[in-house]
């Protein structure tokens, strides 16, 4: 089953193309990494996949429907740095937000059970009643992942889930993502993600270079090899 299909996708905000002729597909339950330099268009691509932006040209399908019509099955973890920390809200309430939907104004007992279950499965149940302000970066990220998972999505999309987190937290989060049994798309400018068990890699720098896993078999893009790739990966990946 195809989870994602992107065909001849073009996008521009104003005059300049941010994405040109992007094509890829992703099978159900696979793990895809979108990498590339800052400003390369990764977040833009993710927002197109989420249906927050509309393609200038081309087509996107998430489980055979345009993203906007299939949002129910998408879980989303935004870049966590954008949020106000002073907000008087507990972890449990943030996770419950993932159960909101059209026409639903109050949380049911089932919603609460589901939220507890999700917190437990991510090993953060004991944070339940804490204010977000009092959490570490890694813990906050896990809370956002819990909020995305609590609606039981078929596909999880994450924007820079390991940025601004200490190395141990990064490892924990990537371990976690690696083991989820749903389709996953992770955007990251940190290419250490390629050391993970990813099934597909898109290197986005205006034009996407798509590459099928296994790990470390990295696209032989000149800019990518020369500029982006950290030293210890260069040898294996690009043969230089």
């Amino acid at each position: 089953m195809k989870a994602v299909e992107v065909k001849n996708l073009y996008f521009k905000y104003e005059n300049e193309w941010v994405l040109e002729d992007i094509n890829f597909e992703l099978e159900d339950k696979k793990f895809m990494a979108i990498i590339g330099p800052n400003g390369g268009g990764k977040t833009t691509l993710l927002k197109l996949l989420l249906g927050f932006l509309t393609p200038t040209k081309g087509e996107i399908k998430i489980y055979n429907k345009p993203p906007k019509e299939n949002r129910e099955i998408i879980g989303y973890v935004p870049q966590h740095t954008n949020f106000s920390l002073d907000l008087p809200i507990t972890v449990f309430d943030i996770v419950l937000q993932g159960r909101l939907k059209k026409g639903k104004f109050f949380y049911s007992q089932e919603d609460k059970e589901k939220a507890k279950e999700t917190l437990k499965s991510l090993n953060i149940y004991e944070l339940k009643d804490k204010k977000i302000k009092n959490l570490s970066g890694g813990q906050r990220q896990k809370v956002l992942i819990a909020r995305a998972l609590v609606s039981e999505p078929k596909i999880l999309m994450m924007d820079e889930p390991t940025s601004a987190i200490d190395p141990r937290g990064q490892k924990e989060i990537l371990d976690m993502i690696e083991n989820f049994n749903i389709t996953r798309i992770v955007v990251s400018h940190d290419i250490k993600i390629l050391l993970r068990n990813v099934d597909k890699i898109a290197y986005i720098h205006k034009k996407a270079v798509i590459h099928e896993g296994p790990k470390l078999n990295i696209p032989k893009d000149k800019h990518f090899c020369e500029v982006e790739l950290i030293e210890f990966l260069k040898d294996e990946a690009c043969g230089i």
Partner: peptide
């Protein structure tokens, strides 16, 4: 107030 974009994703 926490995350308007996420609310949109939830179809609201």
């Amino acid at each position: 107030s926490y995350d308007r974009e996420f609310l949109k994703l939830r179809g609201i």
